[in-house]
Amino acid sequence: MTRTKVALVGIGKIALDQHVPALAASPDWELAATISRKGEVPGIPAHTDFAAFLAERPDVPVVSLCLPPVPRFAHAEAALLAGRHVMLEKPPGATLAEVHELQALARDRGLTLYATWHSRMAHAVAPAKAWLAERTVQGAHITWREDVRKWHPGQDWVFEPGGMGVFDPGINALSILTEILPRPVHLTGARLEFPENRQTPIAAQLTFSGNVTADFDWRQQGPQTWDIEVRTDRGELALRMGGNVLEIDGKPAAGEATIMGEYPALYARMAELVRAGESEVDLAPMVHVADALTLGRRVAVEPFDF
């Protein structure tokens, strides 16, 4: 089977850790080009100018964007205008309005736009959704605590406007929550902790309708915590390890403690969408973040530096 050529834009940590290995193992895709100011992938033609790439490489029909959220819109728009299908790393943009604009542009031009949520591809998410579908949810709590120095070393953009701060990882939890709950919930309040020297929060405590709460923190050292616990009328469910391990009433039920399958699954889904001529853009997780930044009470905390 002939593999489709794809270009990877933004060769940083997430691209090298996840996208490149997923593409190398994929039966659907051939990594044919990279576009980055500094980063490269050995053996792959490297470009530094995106406009020049679009003009010089009409043989590459798909672009996967791994850039930070703020510059992503301009690249996605240019790619769609050039007739390329576009895959977006999470979150799909810096604002909801710009993603709606990309949706319309892709639709009008008959192109695929895929807003990915990698945590939804975790091993235990689908069985958790199926288990909850037959039950009444009485409440839930998310604990999503990790070390920003480990996952975003020296990346100051995460603390700049549009970088989302602790919601950069927290939106992964929200992507799982919005996938598995039988009925949607909405945010009712938030407490946001902003370092005195930063523009985005380093921690957040959220409350939702339906007795759902969340605790996000980017200051955890040692073991990282990515848990979602759900109470129902017929038992309790817990998703551990970022959605990769399922427990029912405290006993292991499904999944495995590895996240390596998430990005291969994303690229397999992108291949399906391109073949079908369809798009997939679910903005529910991003809506919760926008609501938290609207309703949240801001609390100043100690300065943060890498």
Rank of each mutant, 00 (worst) to 15 (best):
N244Q: 14
L283H: 08
A76G: 04
I228E: 01
R198S: 02
G235I: 13
P182A: 13
R231Y: 02
W144K: 03
S175Q: 01
L177A: 03
I248M: 10
L96G: 01
D17N: 14
F73K: 01
G139E: 04
R231N: 04
R275Q: 14
A271S: 12
T258K: 11
V20N: 00
L67K: 04
M260V: 15
I176H: 07
Q199T: 04
P27G: 11
I248C: 02
P21K: 12
E77A: 14
D215P: 00
I202A: 04
P71G: 03
E30P: 00
R135N: 09
G210C: 06
L105R: 10
F73L: 12
L80A: 01
R72C: 02
Y267G: 04
F50C: 01
P91Q: 09
A46F: 08
D49I: 12
H19G: 07
D291M: 11
T294I: 08
A133F: 06
F208H: 09
L177S: 00
A253T: 13
E30S: 13
A253H: 11
E193C: 11
A55S: 12
R145A: 09
A190S: 08
P161H: 14
F306C: 15
A140C: 06
A254W: 13
K129E: 12
A300Q: 13
W29A: 02
P161I: 12
I176W: 04
H186N: 07
D215T: 10
T225V: 15
V86C: 04
F159Y: 13
R191W: 14
H288I: 09
W151S: 10
T136P: 00
G170S: 06
R120L: 12
S209T: 15
S119I: 14
V60E: 02
A51Q: 11
L111W: 03
K13A: 14
T188H: 11
R191D: 13
D217Q: 09
I228M: 00
A52W: 00
V166R: 09
Q221A: 13
E262T: 10
H186S: 15
H288N: 06
E236T: 10
S26R: 06
I14M: 03
L8H: 05
P285E: 07
P223W: 13
T116C: 05
R72D: 02
F73V: 01
T188A: 13
